[in-house]
Simulated assay, not measured.
Amino acid sequence: MYPGSALGEFLRSRRARLRPEDVGLSPGRRHRRVSGLRREELAPLAGVSVGYYTRLEQGQGPNVSAEVLDAIARVLRLDDDERDHLHRLARAARARERVRPERLRPGIKLMVDSFTEVPAMAVGRRGDVLAWNRLAHALLAPHWDFDGAEKPNFVRVDFLETGFARELYVDWEQKARDDIAYLEGSLSRFPGDEGLAALVEELSALSPEFRAMRAEHPVANCASISRGYRHPEVGVMTLTSELLRTPDDEGQGVAVFQAEPGSPSSERLRRLAGLVAATAR
């Protein structure tokens, strides 16, 4: 997708969820042809002309200022994550450069290997597992070969191996929306990544759930997420994943999964670690 189109689609999705009454306007006619706020209603509130805002939704406003974006975000009632996403999309619409191929740094691999009591993995901007420890393998994709050259892409697993994913995640739908938010964040930061665009096209073609959820344009900060996991040998665990971004910020991060100390989930995670250690001997 052309970055300008992504910007326009996001703006339209957020405009559609507002009513005139939400921004202090009269609802006017009972039967409106357009669901949500009209462009001619939004533009004056943001301090721009209707023509300028229309061009912005059409991806033809490459030099839009941060002040105008903030004004539009205010009118659309965007939260902090959505406002940041709007700014990234606007920058992406100006970008044309290709991105470098994604390669795992040896130091990141060593960091992942250093975690022995909690699941940890290195994740790329497309959702590829670049490295993982045995606990992450046992928790998230035990049906994959831990030592295999090919490792899973967690977005593909969640949307194309739905039988497994729906059993693993207590709230699969929220996990799926978080996956899309992760990809959308990467698309806004790396618009020249052809592999990322190809992944979105593949999932759009193969997964009706992906198509439907992506049409909602979910936005979320994926840095810290608490989620329920079902494991066939130890039961249900609530774990919080912390995504630690690499200093060069090329879209890679290290995800570490932890349980609340002293909780039943902590005891179950400890049992899983024992099972993994026994199997590895």
Rank of each mutant, 00 (worst) to 15 (best):
V236P: 01
Y229F: 15
M237V: 02
Y229Q: 04
M213V: 04
E233C: 02
V236H: 09
M237I: 06
N221Q: 11
A220K: 15
A205K: 12
R214D: 06
M213I: 12
S207R: 07
P218M: 10
A220Y: 13
A215Q: 05
G235Y: 06
A212S: 14
P232L: 07
A205E: 14
H217Q: 15
R214L: 02
S207H: 08
S207Q: 06
M237W: 08
C222D: 08
V234K: 11
V236G: 03
A212V: 05
A212F: 04
S224E: 15
A220M: 11
R230W: 13
S226R: 15
C222G: 11
E209P: 01
E216R: 14
E216Y: 00
E209N: 10
E209I: 02
P232R: 12
H231R: 05
H217L: 05
S226V: 13
F210Q: 09
G228M: 05
N221H: 14
G235V: 00
P232V: 06
L206A: 14
M237G: 10
A223R: 15
I225G: 07
V236Y: 00
E216V: 01
G228N: 02
C222W: 04
A212Y: 00
E216H: 01
A220D: 05
A223H: 03
E233L: 13
A212L: 11
S224N: 12
P208E: 13
A205G: 09
